[in-house]
Design a protein around this nucleic acid. Structure first.
Lengths: 203, 203, 203, 203
DNA sequence: GAGTAATCGAGACGGTACGTCAGGTCTTCCG
DNA sequence: CGGAAGACCTGACGTACCGTCTCGATTACTC
């Protein structure tokens, strides 16, 4: 007996419509911003019925989340970010990655959906957890692994909680980006890395 | 030089209505969340015509911003936070304040409007700048001053950019709170303080 | 040749909603009068979204016009008025019909929408023309035909402009009804008929 | 003891404001029509506070009624209509007056407020009665008197109810004007007079 | 001529309804 | 059956006016 629920049969799903919807939502969030982004506009732009969106996603934030994941997936496919560099020089590696992050935060294409999702996630607990789990956490784990390697190499004090160290590196950057307290620069990223590393260096 | 606008005459403004609106918006944002917060509901709850809100504020976010400012103003009046403590022990002082911040972030009453404003500010540049300037910045300045005193006392390296140090302390906390990567605890705050101070200690 | 407008697809229209709206507007105009008749109240009473009204009618007067046409259509269906009587006695026939008209003018059910439409039509040229064309004119044509038959039978002077004669019969009645100069009675109707007929009798 | 009621002291009334309000309402009803005529706009145009209108008139229709009365008063002052002509020729006299009425009905300046008042009066019983009593009835009485004189002179059958005769003359004209069934011309007026007079001639 | 009482211009206020926009559901028809 | 299309009910938007209610600032009568 097949699933008699109202859940749609995903094997029959139109990949063409799915892509069109994700593309349209990314384009529109850039053009009009998250608040003025509407399901109707996405449907119209994608040449799709509203129901096709409601059938597969619970909210516009969910659409955007999937669109963002597709976006970062695409970026990886283009070879931008296959893994976290490990040259042996933990400071250099962190600075390299953080500078890329700074660039991304300053890149219009990524900024609008990223801000939209972060904001939506801050307000909507459920969405926020999904966002963190699916997009943020995987990225943080890469930092964690690199720091753990450095710790094993004796470049970081053995007593340090690596997880906290990651957040100490990423937190200030995110803070500056979200709150716009000051311009987000490579210099700022470098200084953060240096001071954090000094704070967690072996004694 | 006179105000040639058609802006309303603020000398005739009803303070009673203003308070009722601010109170109602704080209450409602706690009850239903920011997304379901509506101007109509605020007006109804405050016993006020919608126009009275539109006359004085451009958006629900602006109402909430002023409400939050009034809230922190009230808190100050109750003597909660007149200044930043300075016992001479910079680590203890920072930990004390950060723990209070953690408590506030975990306090329902403050959390809903704070999240709402941070999120709205992340998306709406203009509002975000107002929020940062009027609420966030004044708080950060207090940290800055305390750190500068510690610097003068030789507890912090003289070459350190105090502003950046502040963001390194505050950033991780905000990050955890907003993104809900992990529970926000006093321990986390303490660890952040310790590691940052070690990172910026005199050499 | 196709309708290139963005006008709604009338084949998908809900007949149920249409009837509910027309019924509600007739009921409400009787209860609260035309000035206090609101689209919102009609929608609420009809159990319909406001947009469903705005989608199909441009104004509350237009709704009422269609409701009135449906009303007279219903009356005809009930056999009240299929045609103009022709007993051969033009005076008796006119008096019969005019007395019915007087009764209708004095019947609450018809009075409110009729006054409302006449008044609205007096002020709004476009609506007025629609009202006259669709409701008034068809009625006047019946008079005209009966008078023409009488003229052919030699009961009316051949030189008389039948159209003007119709308005001389109907005009005084409408005048009394609208302006409330005096009570509208069967006697008054009879007198009008007698005097007009005498005025247009063969010489 | 003076009147302790809230009724204002008319001796202190500003004649200047009164005229400005009446003028503004006439001008505006011509410009935007009755439906879009608002008290606020009248007040603004007249350079007057809203309360000054509400103090002296109960509704915009009442303002317009007084404005119309002032208007016809002015016309009389300019000698247009001191009395009803009596040349001895009842047909000629009626035609003369009716032609003037036709001209007035076709004169923009009079038309807008006249239609507005007639329509408002048709819907609002109280206002309608005031309108009829104060503007319409005095005019009809002039017709009545003239017809009575004709009756005394043996030009009209002695059994005729003069009042009804007046309405038979005026009714068709008003009907055509309000309902726009056909253009309102001098010819039409003449024909009405001729046929009515024939209908009420001595036998 | 000073005191005082009411009207005046102005416009903020609590409301009601406007006409519009979008949300999410439901139905129809097409491939 | 999935999907495009779009009508439907719902509810909030931001605006326009309503009629009431203060505000000073003129008036214009009283003493």
């Amino acid at each position: 007996m097949a699933d008699t629920d109202k859940s749609p049969d995903s094997s029959r799903r139109s990949e063409r419509s799915r892509r069109a919807i994700l593309d349209a939502s990314l384009a529109l969030v850039g053009e009009v911003g998250y608040n003025k982004l509407t399901i109707e506009a996405i449907a119209a732009r994608a040449g799709v019925g509203k129901q096709t969106i409601y059938r597969w996603w619970p909210s516009k934030a969910a659409v955007l989340l999937e669109a963002s994941m597709a976006l970062s997936g695409d970026a990886e496919d283009e070879g931008e970010w296959t893994g976290f560099p490990d040259t042996g020089d933990i400071a250099a590696d962190l600075k390299h990655v953080l500078r890329l992050t700074v660039d991304q935060f300053n890149d219009e294409k990524y900024e609008a959906p990223a801000r939209a999702l972060t904001a939506a996630g801050a307000i909507d607990r459920e969405l926020g957890e999904k966002f963190t789990r699916q997009l943020l956490e995987p990225a943080l784990v890469l930092y964690e692994n690199r720091l753990r390697a450095a710790q094993a190499a004796g470049q970081i004090d053995a007593d340090i909680d690596v997880r906290i160290a990651v957040e100490m590196i990423v937190g200030p950057l995110t803070h500056r980006w979200l709150q716009r307290t000051n311009p987000l620069t490579h210099d700022f990223a470098d200084t953060c890395v240096d001071q954090v590393l000094r704070g967690i260096a072996p004694r």
